[in-house]
């Protein structure tokens, strides 16, 4: 009787474990495809100000945008080109340029709201780059 009980308990554990493992595996399987969704690593702009983050994943895989939604009208496909433009400023965004094309308050949150959603700052950049700028020791 005792043995049977033990076996049942063990069985339940194994089954649960397998299910959990399988579900974990399932999530893993939905792989991020860079050809479909764009570069996996976040883009960090440091001009004109430190530091603004853009994640393709959020906009394509999660947001449902296509590559040609932004490329090459709003942004050159080549990394770092927008950053060099004189007009890569908040003012241009407010006038509908670059991110401002969607971030206008109707399609997506307006460019003059929720600053820190994209502006991760020097601290956020340091964190993304691995150097844990947040725990820097000060004298």
């Amino acid at each position: 009787m005792k043995k049977l009980l033990m076996l049942m308990v063990l069985g339940v554990f194994l089954l649960t474990g397998a299910l959990l493992w399988a579900s974990g595996d399932g999530q893993e399987q939905e792989e991020y495809d860079e050809d479909t969704y764009g570069p996996k690593d976040p883009i960090i702009w440091v001009k004109p100000v430190k530091s603004v983050v853009f994640e393709h994943k959020v906009h394509t895989m999660q947001g449902g945008l296509e590559c040609d939604s932004c490329h090459d009208d709003l942004f050159e496909m080549e990394a770092g080109v927008a950053e060099e433009n004189e007009d890569f400023t908040m003012k241009t965004l407010y006038e509908g340029g670059y991110c401002g094309a969607c971030h206008d308050g109707s399609t997506a949150f307006a460019s003059n709201t929720r600053c820190t959603a994209c502006h991760i700052g020097a601290r956020g950049q340091a964190r993304l780059l691995g150097a844990d700028g947040a725990t820097e020791k000060t004298h």
Partner: peptide
């Protein structure tokens, strides 16, 4: 406060 973007200029 809300406008600060930690650009650290």
């Amino acid at each position: 406060e809300k406008l600060c973007i930690d650009c650290e200029r």
